[in-house]
Design a protein around this nucleic acid. Sequence first.
DNA 1: CAGCGTGTTGAGGA
DNA 2: TTCCTCAACACGCT
Length: 276
Amino acid sequence: MPELPEVQTVINTLKDSGLLNKAITNVSIYKIKLLKNASPRQFQKFLVGEHFIDIERKGKFLIFHLSHKKTLVIHLRMEGKLFYEPNESEVPKAHLRIEFVLNNKHTLRYYDSRIFGTFHIYRDAEYLKAPQLTKLALDPLDINFDWKYLKNHLFGSSRAIKTALLDQTSVSGIGNIYADEILFLSRVHPLRKPSTLTDSEFKLLAKNSTLILKKAIKHGGTTVSSYKWDPTHYGGYQNLLLVHTKKDQPCPTCRAKIQKIKVNGRGTYFCPRCQK
DNA sequence: CAGCGTGTTGAGGA
DNA sequence: TTCCTCAACACGCT
């Protein structure tokens, strides 16, 4: 369930595992639908022979910088996973969709049960002009992100604050799980209109957004595999969740029962006593 | 067996 | 135009 911390965990793990400087010797595509701006042949030709130079993140997008100023942009959407594995992995896994065979007896494999992920290739800095990336707002880890930025981008919206927090063009990187946690820690009810929030509530929301995402990265994300070769190793933040998935359990602050409602179609958990 | 869901886009409505 | 809502995407799980 990749939100910003999970995407950052993918980057950290792939870098640690030694993907950088490895060259792609072959690309196998089992689900053409994943490629959004190239045919399989174009995609292969574009990538084979190039090596990985760096990996960065914009919002929840992964940006792989390759040799010859080429760029591969991947979004994991709901279920996408990237594992750096030995070529011969013992157990053939389900949902293998794309393989990048490398020049060191390892393969970067993309798994995605629902095939919602997206792959784009770009030359030079063309990726910077892709609408999906230019529209993105700052994320709460950005050096220029602060409560005033958050207020400016949310205040005019007539939607529920939770819906606004999930809008990647208002603030990026936050998904359904962390939105619930941020609102709980800030003691803000998910259905509040942004125009009713005080400055001190915006300050709390901004501070807690940064805090929670940083802490989640430190713990390797939530419920997503750690992206080591062993996919049974899970992110540690799921053990630290305070309200998300806690329906009918006591609020960690006041012991009232956590409620689950729908906000804009998304399952939303909150404490009816703490969050006003 | 029907319903639900972690994220995003795009069609359509107000 | 601008802002917003909701269905769709494809599949596993409950």
